[in-house]
């Protein structure tokens, strides 16, 4: 009898962990990257980032299409897709991880958190850790983060001729407005 109780209790736990009734979701997240050198400034912005946040488990994930990055210069965009990101071979970039720190995402407030997880880009997965801010307001969560990545860490090779035009570390900005999904 006790065993049955335990079992059913555990089963309930299992299923509750499985259900995403309370997740926050967006399909219009923003990720931009910026490279500044004396020779050239490069920027690219993607406003079609898919992101999901589970406020109970503090897990979160991002996914985007590299072809969704818009450059002010069309030729740069073509070169980015053709020569650097190789978007036809590796169309997606993803992040999966969790946030830690003092927060209660069921209450309104601004929380400074640390996000740890794995970034997959150009077929390479690397651990990423960054500080971020989560702001819970009106049933929405506003997330912002800022970090740097090194293209070479993701096997993106930069030829010598253009090395001076591309920064060693690329600044990445993330901004999402998560809505509670039904």
């Amino acid at each position: 009898m006790r065993l049955r109780c335990c079992l059913s209790f555990l089963l309930i736990l299992l299923f509750s962990g499985n259900a995403f009734c309370q997740v926050y979701l967006t399909k219009t997240g923003f990720i931009g990257f910026y490279s500044k050198t004396p020779l050239e400034d490069i920027q690219a912005e993607n406003n079609q980032v898919y992101a999901i946040l589970d406020p109970a488990s503090h897990h979160l994930a991002f996914a985007l299409l590299l072809k969704g990055f818009i450059f002010p210069r069309e030729l740069m965009q073509e070169h980015f897709n053709e020569n650097y990101a190789e978007s036809d071979k590796y169309p997606k970039a993803t992040f999966s991880g969790s946030c830690s720190g003092e927060m209660d995402l069921s209450k309104e407030g601004i929380y400074q958190v640390v996000i740890k997880g794995e970034l997959n880009l150009h077929g390479v997965t690397r651990p990423i850790e960054t500080t971020a801010q989560l702001e819970v307001k009106n049933d929405r969560i506003l997330g912002t983060a800022f970090f740097k990545i090194i293209p070479e860490n993701f096997d993106i090779s930069i030829p010598e001729v253009v090395r001076g035009k591309i920064a060693k570390d690329i600044d990445v900005k993330v901004r999402t407005v998560w809505m509670r999904s039904k």
Binding site: D54, L64, T94
Partner: peptide, 24 residues
């Protein structure tokens, strides 16, 4: 069951990502 639960915890992250990939 504890093992299973732990397994599910880490899988939950992947599931979140998978659901994103699917909708993408």
């Amino acid at each position: 069951f504890t093992c299973l639960l732990y397994g599910l915890q880490t899988e939950a992250q992947d599931q979140l990502l998978q659901s994103l990939k699917d909708s993408l």
